[in-house]
Write a protein that binds this DNA or RNA. Structure first.
Lengths: 117, 117
DNA sequence: CGTCTGCTTCGAAACCTGTCAACCTAGGGG
DNA sequence: CCCCTAGGTTGACAGGTTTCGAAGCAGACG
């Protein structure tokens, strides 16, 4: 288990949403990533990780920021990890999470649309 | 009910995710929008609407594109409408949907991040 | 080598979402 | 004015998701 998923292939990463109809396969892949962002806790977790100095944040620093238990935070981090939005990195005792910048940029590009014609 | 929600206030619309920690209130608002995008059907619906000529698409043109019943498509369109991503416009017999470009651009700006420091 | 802290995983309950069947409302044509 | 088609809404059920408590595993320190 804990097998890393291969999400957002190159052909998918840069398809603008308003340029052409998204194929069903790409839509399922993108929807999985957006679904991972569809939770306030995960959105804040990703924000804290991405805005952290060096782009890395320790779980011991993330957990006390919420009124949730450790396992719950771990679950949300797992969802973000399986969505390809963050990557876990073990540095000694603590586990550090790092945001996947290209993946976020790809999602941003999908939503980036031209002004209404 | 069916009251239009006031989502994504100006202070929220342009906060980059990787620049600073997103407040809980803004996170809930953004998460609601991303949650609406977290379904393949809704993502394709928004794509079809946004990529349609003039940015407007008729329900009678959207429904046959999926293997879903009419009410289900209507429900997904309602979710997109309440998330502020699309706006409904009645033109005679059929209802036309139009994508909310500024809203999509705001979400794109949130995910747009600077390269890792 | 023993123990301790910290993170993950497993299992179960409560909540929410997606889907469909049936009914109601709005506009067009005769 | 009446009937017909097209969309939208409501109610209900199946499935997934979120959350917590308990147990398991990896690494650090004495």
């Amino acid at each position: 288990m804990s097998k890393q998923l291969t999400v957002l292939e190159p052909e998918v990463c840069c398809a603008p949403l308003a340029a052409a109809t998204v194929p069903a396969e790409a839509a399922a892949d993108l929807a999985a990533a957006f679904k991972a962002l569809g939770d306030p806790v995960r959105l804040q977790l990703l924000s804290m990780i991405a805005s952290a100095d060096g782009g890395e944040a320790c779980v011991c620093d993330l957990t006390p920021a919420f009124d949730l238990t450790g396992p719950t935070i771990s679950h949300h981090l797992k969802v973000l990890r399986e969505a390809g939005l963050v990557e876990s990195d073990r540095r000694g005792t603590w586990v550090w999470y790092r945001a996947n910048r290209p993946r976020m940029a790809a999602l941003s590009a999908v939503l980036d649309i031209a002004p209404a014609g």
